[in-house]
Structures are given as structure tokens and as C-alpha cells.
Design a protein around this nucleic acid. Sequence first.
DNA 1: TAGATTGTTAATCGATTAACAATC
DNA 2: TAGATTGTTAATCGATTAACAATC
Lengths: 231, 231
Amino acid sequence: MSNVKKGAINTAHTTSRATVLRLARYLRVLQKLKTVGIINVFSNNLGDAVAVTPAIVRKDFSILGINGNKRGGYNIDLLIEELRRVLGKTDSQRAILVGCGRIGGALLEYKEFVKDGIEIAAAFDTNPEKLNPDGRVPVLPVEQLPEYMAANSIHIGILAVPESAALPVFDTMVKAGIRGFLNFTTVELKCTGRCQYEECPHQCIVQNVNISLELESLFYLVNLKERGMVT
Amino acid sequence: MSNVKKGAINTAHTTSRATVLRLARYLRVLQKLKTVGIINVFSNNLGDAVAVTPAIVRKDFSILGINGNKRGGYNIDLLIEELRRVLGKTDSQRAILVGCGRIGGALLEYKEFVKDGIEIAAAFDTNPEKLNPDGRVPVLPVEQLPEYMAANSIHIGILAVPESAALPVFDTMVKAGIRGFLNFTTVELKCTGRCQYEECPHQCIVQNVNISLELESLFYLVNLKERGMVT
DNA sequence: TAGATTGTTAATCGATTAACAATC
DNA sequence: TAGATTGTTAATCGATTAACAATC
């Protein structure tokens, strides 16, 4: 619980995932604004772009020790620099992908990754037909995962295997050193910020993308809204 | 703001999206448990399965007016029935898909949808090569969207078009009657529960699935955690 | 200067948790 | 009965919002 070191983002009272999510969004928006030639941004600009109130933007920055000008807002270059510093913008954003089915295959070709400086360094599958060690992104047999990981310093993995393979593959990936997961399987790897998995002694961070569940809850939400039963 | 009718889920103090998400998850878990032959479930079973505390489970149910037995927990059949009632489990869970690129194409074949009783009734694209009006799922030109919608009562849509097309297509879909969106484009349709879009007078519900952003924030989270700067 | 925007405090809000009486 | 689990209240926690003094 209190394995949080001092001098951290958490110093005051604001926290973790939701905040980091917001910071990442601010950074993206700022980078876009910069290409348009904007020099100063105001808390309400950023608030609009990220759909939060200006007060939240200011508070977020205030907690991080980022200051603006009482009149001129925030200098975009400084702001970007500070956010990158806080977020520890790693120069290499490399991830591996396990599972090259429909979804995995789509991600292999996903152009946004390139735009955002994310690189899928290698992919893995069990199906011999999918293998392609010499492709733009090498597709290797899963057995080679530990070996590959040992030779490459990568900590983020995308999990896009069938339900039945999810748990064992998750395990393999954790053991091989993956610490952050983008999980497209239907198995909800029970993590809410902190990994609660017994097999995961490393407190990995798992972000579940449960497409089917999200679509299903949309049906409910729309239905409930029509019945006036939801905010 | 206060367009919430009375006698609603919101009666007391619990609310909307997070809650509905949880309810949907309970329901899924219950249906799985039922296939295994379970008859009674306890709040801690469900809590474990959905990664929340038993107290939350009980509170959720209590607010909905769902009661269990002090000793025997909840009867699974009754519980499923009640949840379906509350969620207004629509007999038809049909959605349309716009954009049949890599991601959209993967969703067209997504087997989980079938398992969960979700049907993609039709898909739309601008690329003539993608069209296939007579396929298992008909793929039609986007121009036919309004016409199709007029003839079919569907309110949920999946948006998987390129960034440049996102806004106009969103607009078209709203005008045609879509009220709930699963948005795979990088354009964040600014909705946090309530649609804030001017072009959207209907307060649609948008669920953004920003894969690239989620992956990127994973890099940050893992990095921050290593530096002890995050919960 | 006058006007606008920051930075911060205190108030509010809502959701989670602890705790325990009721009871099966 | 004894033990376990619900249902609910009150306490806690954390995040958002309102408001405004400071100041560029």
C-alpha cells in the first residue's frame, strides 16, 4: 500500500492513473498545438481539448510544480518540456506484441503507433503460418519470447491471443520481464492500477481493452439513458 | 444537468458509467458461473471476479433493490434476471460498423461479439473495393447509411475510420440516429458520460478506445512506477 | 490602469470502506 | 446453536469545483 516513495507525484493528494492519463493527453494536445505555431496556451484551451475544467488543468500543473504566467498562460515549449520530464518520456517506446490474429495483425500495421513514436519491436505467435522472422516487424515463435526479451530491454507488451492462451502467455510475459500490458483478451487480468495477480509478483500494470464488454455496456447505457435512469 | 427522472438508478447517490460497467461485468461473470452449475453466489465471489470489494457488490445490489439471503448469498437465476431487468437487456444487440480498414475488418470477424450475442448488422466504407452488399455482414457504401438506418432500428455504432473522416462520419451517424458510439479513431469525441459535442444535440454516449494513447500512457505509468512516483 | 488569468484555499461532492447489527 | 453473510450506517478518502486574492 504505502510503497510510494516521497517527492513523488503523489506528494499532495492527486494520483496515479487518471492523472497520468490526463497528463499524457495534455502532452498530445500541446504537441499538436505546437505544429500550428501556438506559443502560449491557457488552462481553458487545454481544458477544452481534454474535456476537463480549467481548474483541473491548473491544479494538475500546480501539483507538478509547473508554473505559468498570471497573464500570459503557459509557454508551450516549457510546458511540453516539463510534461516530458515528469512523464519521463522515454526515448524509446518499444513494445512487443503477442498474438497475430485479426486484432494483433491490425495492430502490427497500425499507423498511429508510428505517428506517436511507438514501435512494435517484435511479434510472437504459435501458428507457423504467421511466422516471419525477416519481416519489417519480425514475427517469431512464442518459445523464443524469453530469449528475445533477455536480449532486448522492453517492458511493455500487447496481449492479443485467444482467451484460452491468455493466462499462460501472460505468465510467460511477466516472467520474461514485461511490466505493462495492453490486454485485448477477454480475460480480465484483474488489475486496477495495481496488479493483484498472484502469478505477478512485480505489480505489473494492466490496461484492459475489453471491446466486447465496452460495446455491450454501450447498449445498456443508451438503453438506460432513454429510460432516464442514468446521468 | 438534472434531466434525470425519478425512480432511477440514481435515486440515492450511486451513478452511471462506472456502476453500469460493474453491473455488466457482474452479469457476465454470473452467466459464466451459471454454465458451471453454480446456484448461489456470495458477494465476495463476485467481488473477486470483478476486482472490487464485497461491500461494493452488496451496495450496488442494495441500491438496485436486489436482495440476497443473509446466509445463502444470492440465487444466481434471480440475480441474473434482476440484472437483466435493470440493465434493460435488449433482446437484440445489433450495431453498425463504419470503416472497414484493418481495425474495422478485425471487428467484422470478431468472434467474441457472437459469443456475447452482439451482431454487427451492417458495415459501411467509402472504398469500392471493400464493398460487399451480399456478404455475411453486408458492406455498403457510406452514402447508404442514412437510408439503412431509416429502415433498421439500430442505435449503436462502431467508428473505425481514418482520423480525417472521423468528424463528418460521426456527424452523419448522429444524424442518422446512432446514440452510442464505440470510437476507435484518434479523434477524441469529447464525451465524458455526457456528449458535449455541439453537433450532437442528442447527448450521445461515446466510449473512446484510443489504443495509441492507452499504450503510450502505459509507457509513462511503468516508467513512473519504476521511479516510485505513482501508486 | 483595467482586464484576464494564474495559483491556491476551502467547500463540495461522490464513491469506497469499515464496521456491525440483523438474521438465515 | 454457532457461524457466516447480508444490508446499512457512518467514517473516510480522494477528487472536483467554486471562489477569489495575487499579479502580470
